[in-house]
Amino acid sequence: MINGLIKAIANLEEETTLRLVREKVESGETPLEIVEQCRKGVEIVGKRYSEEIYYLSDLIMSEEIFRGVMEILEPYFPKNTAQKEFKLIMGTIEGDIHDLGKNIVINLLRSVGFEVLDLGVDVQPGDFVECVRETGASVIGISVLLTFSINSVKKVIKLLGEAGLRDKVTVVIGGYPINERIREYTGADYYETDAVKAVELFKRIIMEKEGS
């Protein structure tokens, strides 16, 4: 069922969205219920993006609207939230400070309900591995926009091997210069260059892991 809020987000109507969220808060809907509707809206945005109805400017707008919604809801969330279970670690590789693509993918992943741990940009190869150890996450997404940094991605895979974690962890690399040749060179498991397709890929990987 598509209600007004889902539709407002899907159509990127910023003012309507924020007004509806405020009304819903006042009428007693829980923040989780409201977030759930917003996520559905953002999912439609993602779908429209993959159908080339929407473009990057629209994804960024949806991110901005979602941010505005979370700002309104922030005070209403229960204070002591339980430890989050991160399934996914994301970061831009060492030497590279691009974060647009990574942030869009993270936003889309969160909007479909995944907990994503964002390590930021210029992430050292060892930090990815350390993070896997600490959180038990089994999927890593590495963003790489500079061909210069490809060897650092290769190093992540090597370090995972040395730590005995390679079999447990699926590594996905993404970013515009990535192709099958580069994936093969780095030893990563998958690659994707499209944000929405990347989210589908992550979903598939996680479903397989949970199924097994």
Binding site: L12, E14, L56, S57, D58, I60, M61, E64, L100
Partner: peptide, 11 residues
């Protein structure tokens, strides 16, 4: 900046 201009495209 990219984010700023993309929001201006709509706003």
């Amino acid at each position: 900046g990219l984010r700023g201009v993309m929001l201006d495209v709509r706003r």
